[in-house]
Design a protein around this nucleic acid. Structure first.
Lengths: 213, 213
DNA sequence: AGCTTAAGCGGACTTCACCCCGTTTATATT
DNA sequence: AATATAAACGGGGTGAAGTCCGCTTAAGCT
């Protein structure tokens, strides 16, 4: 008889201890980020804090950036769900241009809220769209531009540039106000204050870019 | 008598040995970049290759990124001179919009030509406009936008976003074709092929953004 | 020419990301 | 329940960035 209790085809389910350890590591990581700031989180420290070996941390997350990527993952998925199936104008139903504007504002809010982790999740050894949230941003912008009928011939290049315009400021071009690595309420507040102007500016940008042909 | 052979007021001139060593280090660095690729250049290796101590390398350049920054410096200055005092449309004389377009194309060419070093010159611990070439890009774009009379209220935010749109792709958003760290003629060629479309796209972008009011 | 001193120098040291591989263990099978 | 096996684990090892601090020396002074 062939009663495989697991989905066929898949090589194997995740082992129970592995799952438990991943949760444990993420919990400890979250705690360390809150307590010490993201860039005080070391692989050794995380392993020790979780009572596990360093090798285990690497098996789970592959790289330091991977930890922060995982930390972001839940929120990122919720965000993407809103975009793909939520109410308009962020979700489907509104005009492409309206969705583009709404996406920018929402993304800016998301990045602002997660700024320290977003920065730590950058893997300096590989280009960003490879795996990160920017891949989604890029794909979504690309789709909306296509629907909007901008009259632009080379949508690929435009997409890359708009993605940069949207996410670049957070990744590299905007100095963190506090400059210090510790999480500071002041820094957060100052960053919030920048979020709205950037959102407005994004709106202007896409309005004008799409008003072509 | 008071015949100071050195500029007064300045604390002290650079010592001769220091200058000699800096040249030496830069020469060795250039050689290592050409021979091994930028990310095989280590501080230890550089020091040893130059026959100097590691402390000296750090005194001169402060950080690994500093080396590449210094390597870029000459060309960067030449580039800036062209922009500030060269012939139009890159230099002064043309309309702001024409200069903006020309600047983008020129900057893309510059970044393309220096791509590996540009990437190595990124300091992941501080935001880019702080010291790098992007500060100049940002200032220049800001000035031209002001002159162009775009009708946009918040030029600061727009400037940050356009700077990101221009330089972001090279810094982080564009995967290097070869993916390998060694300098490959193929990778360079593939990168060149992306430069022109990006330039065209930049032209469209600024055309449309400025055609506002 | 000798003296003073601040700048320059060097390399041991620390910290951290990431690798490796022998050992342990959860799970499926019998 | 016993066994087989692939996955998970752990922690020592490696390479590189960046720091420290006592020694050396170039450059100005008398």
């Amino acid at each position: 008889m062939d009663r495989t209790p697991l989905p066929l085809g898949r090589p194997r389910a995740e082992r129970a201890d592995a799952a438990r350890n991943r949760e444990q590591l993420l919990a400890v990581a979250r705690e360390m980020v809150a307590e010490l700031g993201a860039d005080k989180v070391t692989m050794d420290g995380l392993a020790e804090g979780a009572g596990l070996g360093k090798g285990t941390v690497y098996r789970r997350f592959g790289t330091r950036a991977g930890i922060f990527h995982a930390l972001l993952d839940d929120d990122e998925h919720a965000f993407q769900r809103e975009v793909l199936a939520g109410p308009p104008p962020l979700g489907p139903g509104a005009s492409p241009l309206a969705r583009l504007a709404a996406y920018g504002r929402a993304r800016i809010a998301f990045l602002t809220a997660h700024i320290t982790i977003v920065r730590s999740a950058l893997d300096h050894h590989r280009a960003v769209p490879a795996e990160g949230g920017s891949a989604f941003t890029q794909a979504h912008i690309r789709m909306l531009l296509g629907q909007a009928g901008t009259g632009v011939a080379d949508l690929d290049s435009l997409t890359v540039q708009l993605t940069s315009a949207l996410e670049g400021p957070f990744m590299i071009f905007l100095a963190l106000p506090g400059a210090g690595p510790e999480p500071s309420a002041d820094a957060d507040a100052a960053f919030e204050r920048r979020a709205r102007p950037l959102g407005d500016s994004w709106q202007t940008l896409v309005d004008r870019v799409c008003r072509g042909a």
